[in-house]
Amino acid sequence: MVIKHKDPRFIFLKGKIVIFIIVALVGALSFLYFAGKQRGLFTKTENFYCVVSKATGVYTGMSVRLSGFKIGRVQNMELMDDGFVRITLSIEDKHTKWFREGTVAILTKEGFIGEYYIEILPGQGALIKPKQTIKFFRHSGIEEIAAELKGEISEILKGIKETINYVNEPQGDIKKSIHNIEKISQNLVDTTNKLNFLLDDIKDKTPSILAKSENTIEELTELIKSLQNSAKHLNEITSNFNEITKKDLTLIIEQTKRSMEDLDEILTSIKGIWPIREGIKKRDIKPLEADSYEK
């Protein structure tokens, strides 16, 4: 019996399958193309070589960068007959212009613990043709730095060990000093206790001192008040005295001056009268005394 496909979903089924297969193939091919393109499968590259004695840290597919931008990768590594390793760097064609005489490749890391990569430092000379060898250097990573520092750290550790031993020595200076500090601390505690006792004592006596002080302050206040009153009286007296003497003082001074002058004259005259003048000491005027080596 012939099965008749009457269901409308089966109409042009073959055609639909062919279209599906074609679309799937086109999609798969497109994916492969873009994926390949993304991975640089379709980019034209040129090879450059580096010869090193040790290729530790270098692996196939490692990125090659210039100023932080990827320009290629390590394509291959092979051990040569002389024991050296030849590294093949596959560089995108458009970036070969950076490969000039003096160009060097440096194996370095992103930070101390990041991924290894090869950094290209362009030279200044003429362009290098592909398949030429460039110089290769290794940048110290944390392992190398640690290896370098190992010796120094060992010495430091040795020194620290000796110091610790010196500190721990029972009869050593430091132990003795600590012992002395302990003693001083103990003495300080004793002194503090005594001070506390003294302060307590003062605290007990303070109320009586304060009471006396209060009395004294009261007495002082009274005294100041009476002094202020006295000062007021004195000011009044002084102002009265000023008023009284203002006119007469000049006259008094002048008269006193005249009297003093008269007195001076009288005294001078008396001094000159014999026999008083004999008793008055002469003024000390010395002659020109010659010394023993004078002319």
Binding site: K282, I285, K286, P287, L288, E289, A290, E294, K295
Partner: peptide, 19 residues
């Protein structure tokens, strides 16, 4: 007289200085 003696003494010294 006291001053006169003293002055004469000083004069003597000045005259010796003046040869």
């Amino acid at each position: 007289d006291n001053s006169t003696v003293m002055i004469l003494l000083s004069l003597s010294r000045i005259y010796t200085s003046l040869d």
